[in-house]
Design a protein around this nucleic acid. Structure first.
Lengths: 117, 117
DNA sequence: TAGGGTTATGTTCCTGAAAACATAACGGAG
DNA sequence: CTCCGTTATGTTTTCAGGAACATAACCCTA
């Protein structure tokens, strides 16, 4: 296999007591944005529709305006897409992730040098 | 109650496939450093000794040199303390956390403005 | 040599989150 | 007016991580 240096940083944003946004929901939002479907987005992540929908529901309840809007029925059965708020939330998450990778590079490298194996 | 704006960033460092270091183990290391005891450190976090010890074991297995060294018996029954490696690992984690807080402040504020309630 | 506080380790029980399974509603197209 | 793919929601089952419980080993001191 490839080198696959799986030593990396993971970011999670906590909102209040229970709501949060981490790598999973972020990736799900991206898939919804790209596919226009909660079903397809979930499938792309090996996740059941119910779970994907549940995550979307949680996100929608977290923000003042919904992050994903959905439609039932119609030509293609329906669909889903990100709102402006959803796009903004996703962008902010990815931005913080990028900044984290940058500023954390040195310390992360130092930690790598201490690893076993 | 106080304002308690619980909107914050959480950092986790992934090493390889299963080993990781997050807020829990970091705090535990700090308590061990400060108390010289796994038992006391665990208690300070409302955690059983077994669990605390298990986390330490995992950490020790993650790095080339142990992060915590222990002693059994003796005047005070024994104890535990951080090694140079342990102190370094902790310092790096806290440093990345601090940097993250700094560089993420703006985007985090923007996200706060989108929250419900 | 007994006591005390700690490390070390095993076993069983609980619980909350995810998976699995099931069903209904929707609405454009043909 | 039926079909299709999707959203929406409920119920049951599974499972892994933690909690709870139990016990042994260690070693300095008094």
């Amino acid at each position: 296999v490839m080198d696959e240096d799986a030593t990396r940083l993971r970011l999670r944003i906590l909102f209040g007591s229970n709501a949060m946004l981490g790598p999973g929901k972020a990736e799900l939002l991206e898939h919804i944005r790209d596919t226009g479907s909660i079903t397809a987005a979930g499938a792309a992540m090996g996740m059941s529709y119910k779970r994907a929908w549940s995550l979307v529901e949680t996100l929608n309840a977290t923000f003042r305006e919904p992050v994903v809007v959905t439609a039932r029925g119609g030509v293609k059965g329906g669909g889903a897409q990100l709102t402006e708020t959803g796009l903004a939330v996703l962008a902010h998450y990815r931005r913080i992730e990028d900044l984290l990778r940058e500023v954390g590079a040195d310390d992360l490298a130092a930690l790598r040098a201490l690893l076993a194996e």
